[in-house]
Design a protein around this nucleic acid. Structure first.
Ligand code: ZN
Ligand code: ZN
Ligand code: ZN
Ligand code: ZN
Ligand code: ZN
Ligand code: ZN
Length: 478
DNA sequence: GAGTTTGAAACT
DNA sequence: CAGTTTCAAACTC
């Protein structure tokens, strides 16, 4: 389902973007559609010429392409595309994969906390929209298709370039003279374009041949995929990036056909799209049902208590680091809940708690530890009690506060500390302990719980990071 | 592999 | 739009 006719312009168009990547002819400029693809590795340009992929501001421009990869299934489009992102969640253009409109390949990428995958479809969708908001051409090729003096990884060779070709936005190099792969032009193997490139001391202009053919003695060749310039490509890189291929060749990962709902700018695009992968509901699978529910219950209760306790102690910080004075508006809902609601409790509770900024990390850690212990007891003996890295012990991390009466947590520091703590914990997913734990608890429950916690933590982390930045900025402004 | 440099992307 | 900060890759040692 979810098949919508293009002409259907509903206000809050829940575009179902990405998903797969739809080959998108990059350049706007009319491409005579020659046969750019050079010999080697020049598969037939089988892609039909699609209509201008421009995201018209008047309506959704859903690229009419084979919904083949609708599920976001493996995009058999690009070659090794691998990133090593650590702090962007692969949801920013910093990430090669994301920038190229592809999902990260858990097998190839070495990214941390990657959200550029089907498992985080919605997040990714939002990120894509944000990115497009900033720059509608964000996912379009930077390198014009057409005949290029390609020389991937090396300086451009030919003489003059055809108008319209080159780096669409030009580079802005200041210290590399455009002779290193720091320069996108150079990396793409094309000359800089006067008037567009704002480089200084450019030595990558037509005529200025071979300054050192391979400007980079070390490292590998650069590459250009679908017009996107990448720095990556160590060694095994593509010697000849074959930039021209963009003309409609599947050789590269054509920038996916992201769609952007521009229908009504006024009404925020809050609900971007509900592409949703599958029904998360049933994903739980059979069997784990009851067990899972019980676990959740237990955890829920434990967390609730913990929260209550801490709140009573005056711990907690406002979203912006401000102390949290009011004991809290205890909107303690009745005790009646259906299983479904109960299931969501964990999320709600932790979310609530985290939102208030308590020692989030600490709580999570303790909770996990407790869970493990519990499990051990139940299971009867042999259980292993995973302690889960409990970060700073009893520490009064965030709320800290101290002593009597008014708990005035040093917003600044507390925030920072908590942030670190959280970031550290965010990597729980990679802890071996958890994997072991998983065996004991059952992947279903563990995964679900963990995911919930992590998501909350991530959200919180983002908040904190922002707050921290602001503080930093504020202090620097002084 | 650790540390530095670089410029695009992000943010203010 | 300019000035800064963040980020991940290119590069150096
Ligand atoms: Zn990445
Ligand atoms: Zn990746
Ligand atoms: Zn990734
Ligand atoms: Zn340059
Ligand atoms: Zn340039
Ligand atoms: Zn230049």
């Amino acid at each position: 389902m979810s098949k919508r006719s293009l002409s259907q312009l509903s206000p809050v168009a829940p575009s179902s973007p990405l998903a797969g990547l739809a080959p998108l002819p990059g350049l706007p400029t009319s491409s005579p559609a020659p046969s750019p693809v050079p010999p080697s590795s020049g598969p037939p340009a089988g892609l039909p010429q699609l209509p201008p992929p421009y995201l018209s501001a008047s309506h959704l421009s859903r690229v009419p392409l084979p919904p083949r990869s609708v599920g976001g299934l493996r995009d058999h489009l690009s070659r090794p595309r691998q990133c090593n992102c650590k702090r962007s969640n692969c949801l920013k253009l910093y990430c090669e994969c994301f920038a190229g409109g592809a999902h990260c390949d858990a097998g190839l990428c070495n990214c941390v906390q990657c959200h550029n995958n089907e498992a985080h479809g919605e997040r990714r969708d939002r990120a894509v929209l944000q990115t497009l908001e900033r720059n509608e051409k964000a996912f379009r090729p930077k390198i014009a298709p057409g005949p290029q003096p390609a020389g991937g990884g090396g300086a451009a060779t030919g003489g003059a370039q055809q108008p319209g070709s080159g780096h669409s936005r030009g580079c802005n190099c200041k210290k590399s003279s455009c002779l290193k792969k720091y320069c996108e032009c150079f990396q793409a193997g094309i000359h800089c374009v006067q008037g567009r490139c704002r480089c200084r001391d450019c030595k990558n202009l037509p005529g200025n041949e071979e300054r050192g053919r391979l400007g980079t003695p070390q490292g590998g060749a650069g590459r250009v995929e679908g017009g996107t310039v990448y720095r990556g490509g160590t060694g095994a890189g593509v010697e000849r990036a074959v930039i021209a291929a963009a003309g409609g060749d599947a050789l590269f990962a054509p920038p996916s056909s992201y769609t952007i709902p521009v229908g009504n700018p006024s009404s925020s695009a809050v609900a971007p799209c509900s592409f949703s992968v599958a029904d998360p509901v049933d994903s739980r699978g059979s069997g784990a049902g009851l067990t899972y529910q019980r676990k959740m219950e237990g955890l829920s209760k434990a967390l609730e208590e913990k929260i209550e306790r801490e709140r009573a102690m005056g711990l907690g910080v406002g979203k912006n680091g401000e102390p949290l004075p009011p004991p809290a508006p205890p909107p303690r809902p009745p005790a009646e809940r259906d299983s479904a609601a109960r299931m969501g409790d964990i999320g709600r509770i932790t979310g609530d708690y985290l939102a208030r900024g308590g020692g989030a990390a600490r709580v999570v850690a303790m909770e996990l530890g407790e869970r493990a212990r519990k499990r051990a007891e139940e299971g009867g003996g042999a259980a292993k009690t995973k302690g889960i890295k409990a970060t700073n012990g009893g520490a009064r991390g965030a709320g800290g506060g101290g002593g009597g009466g008014e708990v005035a947590p040093p917003a600044a520091l507390g925030c920072d500390e908590e942030l670190e703590e959280l970031q550290e914990l965010e990597e729980l997913e990679e802890l071996e302990e958890l994997e072991e734990l998983e065996e004991e608890l059952g992947s279903g429950s563990r995964a679900e719980l963990l995911r919930g916690l992590l998501e909350n933590m991530q959200a919180r982390t983002e908040q904190l990071a922002k707050a921290r930045r602001e503080q930093k900025a504020a202090s620097r402004i002084r």
